[in-house]
């Protein structure tokens, strides 16, 4: 009878703490997994949105628009941003950015391996360095949208894609289980996103 008036004993408390610890060990990784998956989905969305915007601007303003993948050196190093460039309205020989750089979410990047991102490995604007306003010399590569809404990519449509991966998978040459693929149709510029 007296025992019902005790508070918890140390043993009881320890047992509860142990259960909570075990549960959180089981649950937390799946949460970080979900968060990482979300970041990849958003990253693919950023790339797809910029490509669609480029197509619209090219058709709407009747001029070529460049889609540039922007390199960042800080961890994880890789192509981590997209920016649209077009010839300046006052001087057609000079290219100027149309918008700010759209960065991919923290911890994600566009793979540069030929297997995962053939569009980057064989990009019509090969990897080069140019002065980016506000950033200084920056490495980039990319492709162009023509005013007709088509791209300057090869006709081989199934091979024009980039893969958004996590920083840890930057060197992967086979599709990691968690990645997002953005495919551009070279003829009509339509964008398709695959999320295996």
């Amino acid at each position: 009878m007296n025992s019902s008036r005790h508070a918890f004993s140390l043993l009881e408390l320890l047992a509860v703490i142990a259960i909570v610890a075990v549960l959180s060990v089981l649950v937390v990784p799946s949460f970080t997994h979900i968060a990482a998956g979300n970041a990849l989905t958003r990253g693919a969305q950023v790339v797809a949105d910029q490509v669609q915007l480029a197509r619209q601007i090219a058709a709407g303003r009747n001029r070529d628009v460049q889609v540039r993948f922007v390199w960042r050196d800080d961890e994880p190093a890789g192509y981590r941003g997209v920016q649209l460039w077009s010839s300046s309205p006052t001087n057609v020989t000079e290219y100027v950015p149309l918008s700010r750089i759209a960065w991919l979410p923290e911890g994600t990047l566009i793979s540069s391996s030929a297997e995962l991102s053939p569009l980057i490995a064989h990009s019509p604007i090969p990897e080069t360095t140019a002065d980016f306003p506000g950033r200084g010399p920056t490495k980039f590569c990319g492709f162009r949208f023509r005013a007709s809404g088509r791209t300057d990519l090869n006709f081989n449509s199934a091979n024009d894609y980039v893969t958004v991966v996590r920083g840890a998978d930057a060197e992967a040459t086979a599709a990691p289980p968690n990645c997002a693929i953005v495919q551009v149709d070279p003829v009509n510029g339509h964008v398709r996103t695959y999320r295996p």
Partner: peptide, 10 residues
């Protein structure tokens, strides 16, 4: 199958 990237396993 003819249009999607070869690496997509779906």
């Amino acid at each position: 199958s003819a249009y999607k990237p070869g690496i997509v396993p779906t």
